[in-house]
């Protein structure tokens, strides 16, 4: 069985598993990293959204063999430590202040998608987000937390525009 090598949440990992097993299952079933959730396995619901080299992606749709040893995956568990400073990532902090989560199942993915959107805006020198950009988020939330997600992203963007925060490897 091939040995898969990559970085996850600051750790180098080696896992014995076939190349075509999607990364989501390597994380969840073999490494016990369960923050990224299975909501469809089809790159649709976005509940597995994590970051690779600072950029959002869907681990449910990546055969693990496609990862290079230098690729760094950050899941919700590693988000706070993937940025400078103590405590949580500012997006997580705002998520708590706005009390966004209901059942919470989609929220790791919502937060990672929000981090990605905000980083992209900041890299473009933007301090605001349009309705169309918020509309572009594909994350399903069956509890219907969408209005609070929108509010939280606006607030987190304001916070991060003051003190920019980028996940390791993200394009600035």
């Amino acid at each position: 069985m091939p040995v898969q090598k990559f970085m996850v949440n600051g750790q180098r990992v080696e896992v014995d598993v076939e190349d075509d097993v999607r990364l989501l299952w390597v994380l969840r079933d073999l490494l016990d990293i369960t923050g990224p959730k299975y909501g469809c396995g089809l790159s649709i619901c976005q509940s597995c959204t994590s970051l690779v080299n600072g950029k959002a992606f869907n681990p449910c749709s990546v055969p693990v063999g496609q990862l290079r040893p230098s690729d760094e995956v950050v899941t919700i568990e590693g988000l706070a430590d993937a940025v400078d400073g103590d405590g949580l990532h500012p997006v997580q902090e705002v998520w708590l202040e706005e009390d966004v989560a209901q059942c919470g199942f989609c929220q790791p993915g919502q937060i990672m998608a929000a981090v990605d959107l905000i980083q992209t805006l900041l890299a473009d020198g933007r301090r605001d987000v349009t309705e169309a950009e918020l509309d572009s988020l594909r994350n399903v939330c069956r509890c219907g937390t969408y209005p609070r997600v929108r509010t939280a992203i606006r607030r987190a963007l304001a916070v991060m525009a003051e003190t920019p925060v980028f996940v390791r490897g993200a394009q600035r």
Partner: peptide, 21 residues
């Protein structure tokens, strides 16, 4: 009041059924 379990949700610590070992 904010949810008492929100922190576990936004950090990925909350274990749902599929996350149990």
């Amino acid at each position: 009041q904010n949810r008492i379990d929100a922190r576990a949700m936004v950090t990925g610590e909350l274990r749902y059924t599929g996350d149990l070992v």
